[in-house]
Every structure is written in C-alpha cells, then in structure tokens.
Nucleic acid binder design. Structure first.
Lengths: 139, 139
DNA sequence: CAAAATCCTGATTAATTTGATAGGCTTTTG
DNA sequence: CAAAAGCCTATCAAATTAATCAGGATTTTG
C-alpha cells in the first residue's frame, strides 16, 4: 500500500512547477537541486507527464518545463495515475470474490476521492499553517 | 498503490476462518485447496497472523487454525497492517514537506477509515446481494 | 556560427519485494 | 506407532522499483 518514488518525485516536480506557474519555464536541474534528487531520474518521470499532456517542455538554453494547465485544474490523481497506474488496491477487482471485491472498491473510492479533490493549487499554496498536530499520531 | 498477495491471501484465510467460526479448527490445506493457493505460501502468511494474536493454532492431526476473537471484533485493518505493514502511502510522513504531507495524511486517513470499519463479520456474511453494478466502471 | 543549456532516448545495473518451493521437525489423534 | 497437521528455516526465481550512464537532438544566446 505504498506510493513509490515515481509518484512522490513526480508530485514534487509538479508542485515546483505550480509554485512558479506564470514565471516562465523551470529547468529540471533546478528542481533536482532544490530537492536533492537525481536530474536523470526526474527526466524519466517527466517524460510520461509530458506525454499525458500535463506539462509542456521548452527546449534550448533557459528552457525547461511549464504546467500545461492552471494549477487548480490539475489534480493529484492526474499525476499519480500517470506515474503509478490506475488507482486501485488490486488489479482486476471484477474477478475477485464478492466479499473482497466490496472491500477493494471501498478503498479504491476513498483514495480516488482524495486524489481527485486535491489540486496542485491546494498543494502549492499550502504553507504550513500549523494546524493542530493531532494527526501526527502513528498508526 | 497496490495491496500484494500477502494482504490479499491473508484476508482470504481470515474470511475462511470467519465463515467456519465456532466449528472447530480449519486446516491450511483445506483453505489452500478451496482457493487454489499454495499451502506453503499460506504458511508464511499465517505465521505473522498467529504472532499478532489474530489466530490460534491447534497442532496435531485434525488440527488447524481458529480465529482468536469474534469475527465482529477483527477488522480488515488488523489483517492488512500485520501483513503489509503500517497503513500509509509513504514511510515517514512527518519528514515530508508540508504540501505533500497533507496529501499523504488525507489518503492514509481515508484508507484507514475503510479498513477499520470493515470487520471480518461484514466480509464473511457478504453473500453477493447483487447491488447495482454502477461501481464497476474502470478508473 | 559556436557554445551553452536543456530536453530526449535507450540501455544497463542494483536493490528490493514478492511469490514460490523444499525439507525436516514437532505434536496430536486414532 | 503411523498419519495428519502445524511449525520452522532456508533457498530461489521472478518481478518491480530505483537509479545510473551515455550519448544525441534541439533551441537560444552572445
């Protein structure tokens, strides 16, 4: 039940682009350095994001990437789906025995709901407002 | 974002035990055959379930396993946590940047809510009531 | 034009997780 | 005792994930 670095780093890239939205292209190098990640690895992740039409690339000196849409129009689900595949706890839910199928569907819909209702704007604008740390308990 | 066969088969075992709850021990062999799974592999999965106190073993001929508690007292979260580890989309949520942390927490809590509110009784009693297949769309 | 910056592509490797297999030991029943 | 069943440990194969490497192509700047 984990999201791999693909989805995590992909989200990192997209949040950086959302923060700089409207300020011209941002290079992968800058994102990689700011987050201490491998630039080459990020290249592998942004390729599918570009193919999916979530970002646009601008080549050449002083080039980089920009979001293809407004941050409010791009959901975390768009990103995770591209990099992690369909949002479902189990492949082929339909083939599962009814008891388990019910559980997988409940989980899938719960996660889907969160991912589709959290946009890049929500994430990029989120400065730590220091809400109660009640959610910080370990489960 | 997938649950591996560990969690899936573990849940299968536990549902079988719930269905036969109160009728004496059920052997792994019977469960393996009924679900066309490898008995040896199931042994690896039931060991942690036993260590966690979710099932009790009865050795010797005509032995097997029984639930350690009533089906209504055991949640799917108990089982998944033992076999898949902590329910969280990311290790070390606390260390994440606030923007992403917020998202991981929302996902974690949504999944946690489903898992902790679905008991073995719910699952074992679930005969296919043929609800609307509206949930069968592909995402 | 030449150099720099950047995107773009493919191949390869390393590490981890998952899934499966084998075999022997122990305990209980009949 | 023999059969049935759990218990335990080790090993291996396959798949996935994570990361690295190498080089090329394109565009902009000066």
């Amino acid at each position: 039940m984990k999201i791999s670095t693909k989805g995590r780093y992909g989200l990192t890239i997209m949040i950086e682009l959302a923060k700089k939205h409207g300020e011209g292209p941002v290079s992968l190098k800058a994102i990689a350095q700011a987050n201490d990640l491998s630039e080459h690895y990020l290249e592998q992740l942004i390729a599918p994001l570009r193919n999916a039409g979530l970002v646009k690339s601008i080549r050449g000196a002083y080039g980089g990437y920009v979001l293809a849409n407004e941050p409010a129009q791009i959901t975390s689900g768009d990103i995770i789906r591209v990099l992690e595949g369909p949002i479902t706890p189990v492949e082929g839910i339909e083939d599962e025995e009814p008891a388990k199928r019910e559980l997988w569907i409940r989980i899938r819909d719960a996660v889907k709901d969160v991912l589709e209702n959290t946009t890049l704007e929500d994430l990029a604008n989120h400065t730590d407002r220091g809400e109660s740390d009640a959610y910080m308990f370990y489960i």
